[in-house]
Amino acid sequence: MIGLDVGSTTAKKVSIEDGKIKYQITGTHNWKDLIAGIDGKDIISTGYFRNTVPHRASVTEITAAIYGVRHYFPDADVIVDIGGQDTKVIDVRKNNFIINDKCSAGTGAFLEFVANYFKIELTEMGSYHGRAKRIPAINNTCGVFALSEMISQLVAGYTQEEVIAGMHYAFARRISFMIPEAESLVLIGGTVKNKGMVSALSYILKKEVLVPDEPQIVNALGALKYYS
């Protein structure tokens, strides 16, 4: 049995073999590679395309996130899942959730804009952030307008590293409006591999945030756990 999370930008497969979590991640367009030789009746799907891909059972990303996070942090109060196209905030205590997908400012797509502008990989943005000496204020919460504000800060003399850090803060501030008070806050989703973004959010919320070792596969794992 596998958990399969086919999201808007990446597809993830998780299985548990001899008690160990095995996983594979690829681009959404290559999702079929993940299930080569696997029968649909052995797949528990989740993610945006959960009902499109072969599956024995499907579950929404919200429920999958709760089950997946429970594996790493059984006492999590609030889960923030930052996906490529939307951000979900799940209040586990109240069995409640909100999703932001009206605009890109609080989603992975926003940081992708920034990485594309500087022609760097998304995975490099955390180390750029770490080298920043100052943090410019980027106030605009619209992804496109923030980009033009970012260019203004570059012209004003801030370095590329500093502007990237400023964008992480703008991003984190946007998400922080959605997050309720919590004892234990867990971040998941591919975007949270970016340490700069995580530290900006931790700073704005004035609290430690928990991140699983492989935050991108939590929903695929959760789908599997939900069914087993």
Binding site: Y48, I62, T63, N96
Partner: peptide
């Protein structure tokens, strides 16, 4: 729209969890 369907489906799952 699909994003509304996701919310409805997740809400049903939440009701069934409670």
């Amino acid at each position: 729209p699909e994003q509304i369907k996701l919310r409805l489906e997740a809400f049903r799952e939440a009701l069934e969890r409670s």
